[in-house]
Structure formats: C-alpha cells, structure tokens
C-alpha cells in the first residue's frame, strides 16, 4: 500500500497528490512515469511523474479526471492509500544523460498543454538545478485551468502562459506563441512538447517547418507498462515502438500522431464518449485550441 501524504485540487478536475513510494523516488528521472492502481478492481493507470523527493521517498503526480477510474482517484484524500504504485517506468529524458557542457550551450524550449505542465515541470527543474534556464510555454483553455504556475516560474528562464480564451497571458494557442517567439528572433536548438496528442501534433508540424528538433512524450493506452502487452505501440518513422519501454519520449517529427490518436479512441465507445462530454464539458485537457473537446 502506498500512502497519499498530500492531496490538493489544482483546477477543476485536476488534482495533485504526493505519494510515499521510496523505491520509485530513489530511482526516478525526469521523463519517466508510474503506473497507479487504486484498488483491487481498478485499472492500471499510467501517470507522468511531476516531482520527486529522494530523501522523503515521495513522488508527486497530477491526475486529471477523464474517465471512471480517474474520477474515483480524484476523490482520494490525504491519508488514503493506493493499492499499487509501480515505477519509475519508461526511459529518462535524453538530456539527462547528455554531457552537461554541451547541454549548457543548447537553447531549449518547453511547450506544455493542459496537464502536460506536470511532466514538463521536473524536466525544467532538473535543468534549472544545473544552471540551465529553459524557456517554457504553458497553455490552458482558460486562466483557471492553468496549473503549477508558481512552481514553473521559479525554475523557468522565461515563462509564457497562454490561454485559448485570452483570460490570462498570451491570447491564443501555444503554437502561435512558439511562432511569435521565433519571429522575435529567438533561436531554439530543441523543443520539448508535452500535452494532448493533438497539441503535440500541431506543435510538431510547426517546429518541422521551423527546423527545430522536437521531443514529445506519448501517452497511449497501456496495460502493464513493462513491455509485456504491446498495447502502447506507436509508429515512429518506419519502426514500431512501445511507448512503455522505448519511450515515452520520441522524436516528434517521426511519430504518426493520426494513428496514435485513432488508437487512443479505442475504448471510447459512443456511450463513453457521451459520458465524457457530459463530465468534461468545456474543461477538456485544453491548451491546444485545435481539438474542440474530445471529439
């Protein structure tokens, strides 16, 4: 059993939890994820790691209620337990094993959409702790849905919030912000884009045009998360890759997003889709400006 030491609501249907999981906390790196199972009958749900404290043995996760299982999870309180909490899974972000001096000469741009801010945060923080300041764009549907703002500001070089409805920061989607920065004359060697698949797709289309190499973090359907089932397979260039063991981060210019999005819809039956729409209303992942909800 894994104790929840802290549970906090960040925005509507978005929760942050700090969980005691010493084995995970002692080994995790930016870019990796965990699999959480609430109770005996629950699903195995992959969630990105938002933060970790090796000494305290804790992992911070951010959960968005999108289906029955995550809605149940959102109801958990401080002092409750997860039955299972496994990780860290997947590979660490590539820059973690890069030569620090080379890395210091690189200009990095992070683009986060919606809850994508959670997995972006530990990457930016890791760089900041090593004296590297990256630019960070965070997009949300509206001001109230923007998460982890103070945390992100504290570790980012430049921080650019965007809202689709213009209630805060730059008005418009994250892609227009990227374009604006490049038009201002900013040069980036690498872009890391994490958020809903549709947002990552459009960021990649843009950065391909701008010739900025781009890493994305894929979040396909998974079951075991250890390479056993192949549910999370993706077409990356001319290869089939498993997000759980080969990823979750890939060269965004090689990922077949259209196929990945179709595969993600698998378990969203007509009825399920209706329920999602009802539950999510206009609070869907957001930040991308392209998806128009979950359709």
């Amino acid at each position: 059993m894994y104790k929840i030491l802290k549970a906090k609501k960040l925005a509507d249907k978005i929760f942050l939890m700090e969980v005691h999981a010493p084995r995970v906390a002692s080994h995790c790196q930016p870019g990796q994820f965990v699999i959480v199972k609430m109770d005996e009958k629950g699903e195995r749900i992959p969630l990105t790691i938002c933060d970790y404290d090796r000494e305290a043995g804790t992992i911070t996760i951010v959960v968005q209620e999108v289906g029955a299982s995550t809605t149940k999870m959102g109801a958990l309180k401080e002092g409750d337990y997860f039955r299972d909490f496994t990780g860290p899974l997947g590979c660490a972000s590539e820059f973690v094993s890069e030569d620090l001096e080379t890395l210091k000469n690189k200009k990095m741009l992070f683009v986060a959409g919606g809850v994508g801010a959670a997995p972006v945060y530990p990457q930016v923080k890791w760089l900041h702790e090593r004296g590297i300041d990256a630019d960070v764009i965070v997009g949300a549907k509206t001001k109230d849905m923007l998460i982890l703002e103070d945390e992100m500001k504290a570790v980012a070089g430049n921080y650019y919030p965007c809202t689709d409805d213009g209630t805060y920061g730059h008005a418009g989607m994250v892609t227009t912000m990227v374009e604006e920065l490049v038009n201002e004359g900013k040069k980036y060697d690498v872009c890391v884009a994490i958020g809903p698949m549709i947002m990552m797709k459009f960021v990649c289309l843009l950065t391909k045009k701008l010739e900025i190499p781009t890493i994305v973090s894929m979040n396909p359907i998974m079951v075991d998360g250890t390479g056993m089932c192949g549910a999370c397979r993706l077409q990356v260039g001319d290869e089939i890759k498993f997000a759980c063991v080969d990823g979750p981060e890939f060269d965004g210019h090689l990922v077949d997003f259209d196929q990945a999005m179709k595969r993600s819809q698998m378990y969203k039956t007509q009825e399920g889709r209706a329920m999602l729409k009802l539950q999510e209303g206009d609070t869907h992942h957001g930040g991308c400006g392209h998806c128009g909800g979950d359709e």
């Binding site: 079951v223 390479g227 056993m228 192949g230 549910a231 397979r233 063991v245 196929q259």
Partner: peptide
C-alpha cells in the same frame, strides 16, 4: 518472456489488433 512479436504486415497497428499477451492480460 517479454515483448510480444508482430508480423510487420500492413494494418497491424489498427485499433483492434492485439497481441495475445494484451488480450489475455486484460
């Protein structure tokens, strides 16, 4: 054992193509 093998034929990433491991694990 480990990672399931696929045939490498067109259409193999269609939604309803499972590895036996996935189908059985579910």
């Amino acid at each position: 054992a480990g990672l399931p093998m696929f045939m490498g034929i067109p259409g193999e990433n269609a939604n309803e193509v499972f590895s036996a491991n996935e189908y059985l694990t579910r």
